[in-house]
Design a binder for these strands. Sequence first.
RNA 1: GCCGCUUUAGCUCCAACAGGUAGAGCAAUUCCAUGGUAAGGAAGAGGUUGCUGGUUCGAGUCCAGCAAGCGGCACCA
Length: 638
Amino acid sequence: MIEITFKDGSTRQYDEGVTPEEIAGDIASGLKKKSVGAYVNGELFDLNRPIEEDAALHLITKDDEEALEILNHSSAHLLAHAIKRLYPDARFGVGPAIEGGFYYDIATSESITEEDLPKIENEMRRIVKEAHPVKREVLSKPEALERFKDDPYKLEMLEDFDDSEVITVYTQGEFEDLCRGGHLPNTSRIRHFKLLSVAGAYWRGDSSREMLQRVYGTSWYTKEDLDQYLEMLKERKERDHRKLGKELGIFMLDEKAGQGLPIWLPKGYTVRRVLEDYVYELERRSGYKHLSTPVLGTRQLYEISGHFKHYRDDMFPLMELDDEAYVLRPMSCPHHAIVYSSALRSYRELPIRYAEIVTQHRYEASGALSGLERVRAMTLTDAHIFARKDQIKEEVLSAYRLIQKAIDDLGLEIDYLELALRDEGTGKFHDDDELWNEAEKVMKELLDEAGIEYKEMKGEAAFYGPKIDVQVKTALAHVITMSTVQLDFLLPERFELTYIGKDGRKHRPVLIHRGLLSTWERLMSILLEQYKGAFPTWLAPIQIEIIPVSDVHHDYARDLNRKLIEKGLRSEIDDREEKLGYRIRAAQTQKIPYQLVIGDQEVENDTVTYRRYGEKEQTTLSVDAFIEHIHDEVRRKK
RNA sequence: GCCGCUUUAGCUCCAACAGGUAGAGCAAUUCCAUGGUAAGGAAGAGGUUGCUGGUUCGAGUCCAGCAAGCGGCACCA
């Protein structure tokens, strides 16, 4: 007999070899149905895995977070099982559960396309119906090597195991797979799933190795959950910034203009100008000095900075002429370092904060380009803070607070922070250990002291130093890097930057790189998605659409339009010879925040009647009250 | 860059899917209708079917190469 201790501290006696499933059934039949796995002394157990010794048992039910992972993981096996039947020569890489679903990496002689997915799904359903028990088996490494001798990918994975490590194999019907588990005890427990797409994926995530085919799918415990997830995917398409950007005239891409080189259309540029003005003012108030530097720089400049050595693959190639060579700048820190060094600096001047709206060019891989989200020419508000070492913490934190404010003003939310650190021995980072250790230590300290949580990301640092990346989540759970604060001890060395200290001697300042709101391109893609194209009034390219009922109201409407524009508002008039309903519909489709219908009543009383985008209610105000109303919204960034 | 898919009028198309020489809706244009909160009516116009080759008597339809876009991977603001 063994003793099982439950969550609430109570205990019960069972025969040795009892399974979590049996125990669940012993407690309540409903619990047995709901259970999908268990923790036995903290170790993840399958429901049907025997417990051999006294243990603390925690059953995982469908309501627990881990439950979906178990389901998706089992679904991946189900997928592989079906593929193996349909493509007998298939070999398998890895097949994990991921956020929102699962995938399996597969090598077949015949390529799988999306048209094959229904066929594979049907086979999966057949295997579900066949209700195969899922059995776990422990093997020694030599046994495992023998068992998978025909599967090169599994063999390669096995090589990484220690000889002493527990290796497990899961079998369902004629299909078996090397796998850590846990799994549902029977294929019949997978019900509501759908295969979503096929894509290529490098074996072991290594671009120098062969590419496998990855089939993506999603699996849920109820039909409602599955439908809801599929609905979310549909909604994501509806909100896609590329679709909205085209419909609303925000930006365009053109093959002849160049891949990854977006063109800002008048409406998009209007929004961008509002953002630029906003950021300029925000920075001015926060002690930043604005300047402007060129898009081209000499090769020498980027050799000094180290970009030429560490960043060359991301740069457009050299332009050589006469005796000089130039590059399109990928970053603006070298220019700002030059400006810093153009005068003798005193410790009293520091920190010096330079900000600039810069256009940068980066040679992004063609396959990485995507709408406004990944481009090759980008414009952003970039800043570099030159500070004394004793000012680092305060400056990094105040940069972070500025970021928080800007993100909040835009109606977005910070999801989490990443602290990107270096990974020694990759060659991606400069090699002064002392500088690295010091920089990483300060960053951790200041975050810890301020009680700010973060995720450490090894190997994600910039080549010149560690960085704090601010991740923002949109309305559709789309997480993206929005802002960054980077600590750099290297460039000040490279550019031999100095300031005169209290002691009359020269000292080295530190450089803090600060990216506030990503790039205007990426920010626009996020805002389009966030607001589904319906910009808040302060950002909207057209804030007011005036629609005169008929010809007799044109003069009043035009005067009104002029007046609104005069008052700094973005107003437009639609006096086309079309029916009222037609023009109202046009204004609504363009998601214009305020739609003003002007008829006899308005002309007579010198008023406007407006309807907000998406609402039915109509409000009549005097012209002056209306202007004040809009100005108030703009001030409050609504 | 890599794997797969896609590419027909300004936009959107389950039009032309046994290869016979291009069809619709919307938008735009002109005319008629002067209309109070999401599409009034009519007419005409608009395409070397992404580009370059090939197969064929004949190619939007088949084949090859290239380009761009999309889904991922790798890379990343």
